[in-house]
C-alpha cells in the first residue's frame, strides 16, 4: 500500500491542500529565479523554516538526501568548470579560482563555484518543500484536490482504483515468481549483466492476468452503473479558512518581492 507518508497532526495539516500546493509552486519559482547563491540561501532558509514548522522528520530528510550525495558532488564539479563571458555577466564571476588545464581553458571560476552552490541550494529547497507537502497531506486530500481542480470525477476514481489494486497485483507477482521458480526458472536478483529475456516468464503472465482482471473490472463497473451520468455524488467538501488566506497572502508577497528584486532591481545575477 503506498502511503505518501504518515500524516502528523499539526498546523500545516489543517491547511487546505490548495494552499500547500501554491506554497510548493512559489518555492519552486523563487528557487529558479536567482542565480546568486546568497539569494538562494535566503530562500533555502525560508524552506527550512517551513519544514521546521511542519515538523518534518529529520531522519526522513537524511534518508532522502544520503543516496543522492554523489550527484551533489557531480553537480558542483561540473558547474565549477563553467566559465567565460557566455555564462556570466559579472566580471567577478569570471575570475579564475583554480587553473586545471590551462591549454584548454579548463578552469574553475568563482562564478562556477557559486553556480554549483546555487544548484545545490535549489535541489535542497525543492526537496525540502516537496517533503513538507507530502508529509502533511493525506492521499484522500490529494484526490479531492484533483476533483476540485475540475479534473473529471472519473480521473480521481481511476487513481483510487489503481491504489486499491496495488496489493492485489503484488500478490499476483509473488505467486507467479514462485510458480516459475518451481519450474526451475533462474530469475536472478543479483549480477551485472542479466539477459532481459529471463524476466519474461514473470512479466508476461503478470500482464496477461492484469488484462483479464481489467476485463472483469470493467464489466463489474458497468454493472454497477458506472457511466450512468458523468458525475458521482460527492462526499467531503473543502474548507478554506482564514489561515489559508493568510498563508496564501504571504506566499504571494514572497513571489512579488522575488520578482521585484530580480526584474526591477536586477539583483541576484552572477
Amino acid at each position: 500500500m503506498p502511503k505518501l507518508s504518515e500524516v502528523k497532526p499539526n498546523v500545516f495539516q489543517s491547511l487546505d491542500v490548495r494552499t500547500k500546493g501554491v506554497m510548493l509552486l512559489s518555492m519552486l519559482c523563487l528557487a529558479l529565479l536567482f542565480d546568486d547563491p546568497r539569494f538562494n540561501f535566503i530562500v533555502f532558509l525560508i524552506a527550512a523554516g517551513i519544514a521546521f514548522l511542519a515538523q518534518l522528520s529529520w531522519t526522513k530528510v537524511r534518508q532522502t538526501l544520503f543516496p543522492i550525495l554523489p550527484l551533489f558532488l557531480l553537480i558542483v564539479i561540473f558547474a565549477g568548470f563553467s566559465s567565460g563571458n557566455l555564462h556570466f555577466q559579472q566580471e567577478r564571476s569570471q575570475t579564475v579560482l583554480l587553473e586545471v588545464w590551462p591549454a584548454f581553458h579548463l578552469n574553475i571560476t568563482y562564478g562556477g563555484l557559486y553556480r554549483g552552490i546555487t544548484y545545490l541550494l535549489r535541489m535542497l529547497i525543492l526537496i525540502l518543500s516537496s517533503m513538507t507537502f507530502l508529509q502533511t497531506t493525506s492521499l484522500e486530500k490529494l484526490t479531492q484536490l484533483l476533483q476540485k481542480l475540475k479534473v473529471p470525477a472519473q480521473f480521481s476514481f481511476m487513481i483510487m482504483t489503481a491504489i486499491r489494486f496495488i496489493p492485489v497485483l503484488n500478490r499476483k507477482r509473488i505467486l507467479i515468481l514462485e510458480a516459475q521458480k518451481a519450474r526451475g526458472a533462474h530469475i536472478p536478483e543479483k549480477g551485472a549483466f542479466v539477459p532481459i529475456r529471463t524476466f519474461l516468464p514473470l512479466v508476461v503472465p503478470l500482464f496477461a492476468g492484469s488484462i483479464q482482471m481489467a476485463n472483469t473490472l470493467s464489466m463489474a463497473m458497468m454493472s454497477r452503473g458506472f457511466g450512468y451520468t458523468r458525475y458521482q455524488t460527492h462526499t467531503d467538501e473543502f474548507r478554506f479558512r482564514i489561515r489559508d488566506g493568510v498563508v496564501i497572502g504571504l506566499e504571494i508577497i514572497l513571489i512579488v518581492l522575488g520578482l521585484y528584486l530580480r526584474i526591477v532591481l536586477k539583483l541576484g545575477k552572477l
Binding site: 489494486f165 503484488n170 551485472a192 481489467a214 476485463n215 473490472l217 463497473m221 458506472f226
Partner: peptide, 24 residues
C-alpha cells in the same frame, strides 16, 4: 468503464513493476 479499468490496473502495475528488481 473499459478504459478506466485498464488504465487503473496498469497504473497499479507500474507500481508493482517497480518492485521487480532487475540487476544491472
Amino acid at each position: 468503464a473499459k478504459r478506466i479499468a485498464i488504465m487503473a490496473i496498469f497504473i497499479a502495475l507500474s507500481y508493482v513493476g517497480s518492485l521487480i528488481k532487475i540487476p544491472s
